[in-house]
């Protein structure tokens, strides 16, 4: 890992994981943070501000998630309460470990900031950010000198019915209902089953 990467990596949580994926980390700071603090501003593709959040402070909660536009930007900045070196970091999205890594922070930094162009993220991320879904994100840093944990909620933008997730869900529900109808239709008395050569539990 080169020096530039080390500096940016340190920024996520108070810098660390934000580097790897500024989107969830920035939001996580905004809702709650221990051992660090920060703020984030989300903008759409035209540069209009969608939402702001700070930690400790308001925003990025389950009731008031931070809106994220997959075509927009997220500007973030944060700091740790103490200089953390030789640390490991991790990011969790939807309750599942998403990213992790290590950094040494030989520069002794305790602050970091940056701007993440969300259009540069993988297509799967942009796919998940259409609609009104409330997505929990969290992250942590543990190393020499201290630790930092943060968590929060983000949400997508646009109509839910424009989301691929809506069509996938509706399609799956229709298939499931059709199969359930097949279960009802396929439940037959022994006489009828025996007549067709079938029997027992299938």
């Amino acid at each position: 890992m080169n020096r530039r990467m080390r500096i940016r990596a340190f920024g996520a949580m108070a810098g660390v994981a934000a580097l790897a994926l500024a989107l969830p980390i920035s939001a996580a700071w905004a809702a709650d943070a221990t051992g660090c603090s920060g703020s984030v501003v989300s903008t759409d593709g035209a540069g209009n501000v969608l939402g702001k959040a700070t930690a400790p402070g308001a925003g990025a909660t389950q009731d008031d998630p931070l809106p994220i536009d997959s075509a927009g930007m997220v500007a973030w900045k944060g700091s740790t309460d103490a200089v953390i070196t030789d640390a490991s970091w991790s990011v969790t999205v939807m309750g599942v470990p998403f990213l992790s890594g290590t950094f040494d922070n030989t520069e002794g930094l305790d602050t970091s900031e940056g701007v993440q162009n969300l259009a540069e993220l993988p297509s799967g991320v942009t796919w998940a950010l259409k609609g009104s879904q409330v997505i929990p994100v969290s992250g942590s840093i543990t190393g020499t000198g201290g630790s930092c944990t943060a968590e929060g909620y983000i949400t997508g933008t646009g109509s839910p019915t424009s989301s691929p997730m809506f069509y996938a869900g509706a399609g799956a529900a229709v298939v499931g209902l059709a199969l359930a109808a097949g279960v009802l239709a396929g439940t037959k008395a022994a006489g009828a089953a025996a007549a067709t050569g079938a029997g027992g539990v299938v």
């Binding site: 609609g131 009104s132 879904q133 839910p160 989301s163 997730m165 809506f166 996938a168 869900g169 509706a170 399609g171 799956a172 529900a173 229709v174 298939v175 499931g176 209902l177 199969l179 359930a180 097949g182 279960v183 396929g186 439940t187 037959k188 008395a189 022994a190 009828a192 089953a193 079938a198 029997g199 027992g200 539990v201 299938v202």
Partner: peptide, 25 residues
């Protein structure tokens, strides 16, 4: 009686995924 528990399992599984995605979105 001839019954379809395996089919019922998959019907519920797929229906559950669909309901979950709709509740999420």
């Amino acid at each position: 009686t001839r019954r379809r528990p395996v089919m019922g399992f998959f019907a519920g599984l797929i229906l559950g995924i669909g309901i979950a995605l709709l509740l999420f979105v």
